[in-house]
């Protein structure tokens, strides 16, 4: 940004976003430095926090309520052995309930 000067408000906002103190993000690593991609808490990319148990063997770290994140597990195929995947096995799994937190009674059990 040394050779560029913001000339309009949008550019100024971009400049502020780059130079301001970084936001606090989920799964932030200690000690500052560049932070990785922002992963919203409650949705996991790898098998953490865990399905039945979290890494400590308990339930405190699980996604709660499970219905909040369930469709992420389905559409991204995060938990292929626990939740039906949208890719192949159950493309219409969510058709009866747009919002799992509200319509969770309509979620089907799938026999792959």
């Amino acid at each position: 940004m040394k050779h560029l000067t913001s000339v309009n408000r949008k550019a100024a906002r971009m400049e502020r976003a780059v130079t301001a103190d970084p936001d606090v993000v989920a799964l932030q690593r200690p000690g500052g430095g560049p932070q990785g991609p922002h992963i919203p808490l409650g949705c996991s990319f790898v098998f953490s926090p865990g399905w039945e148990a979290d890494s400590s063997g308990g339930t405190a770290g699980l996604c709660q309520p499970v219905e909040r994140d369930l469709f992420d597990c389905h559409s991204g195929c995060f938990w292929p052995a626990q939740v039906p995947d949208q890719l192949n096995h159950a493309p219409n799994w969510t058709s009866k309930c747009a919002n799992a937190q509200k319509d969770w009674r309509k979620i089907d059990l799938v026999f792959p």
């Binding site: 039945e52 148990a53 308990g58 699980l62 626990q82 039906p84």
Partner: peptide, 8 residues
Amino acid sequence: LVTVPLYM
């Protein structure tokens, strides 16, 4: 451990 159902 009382935990989550299996959806499959």
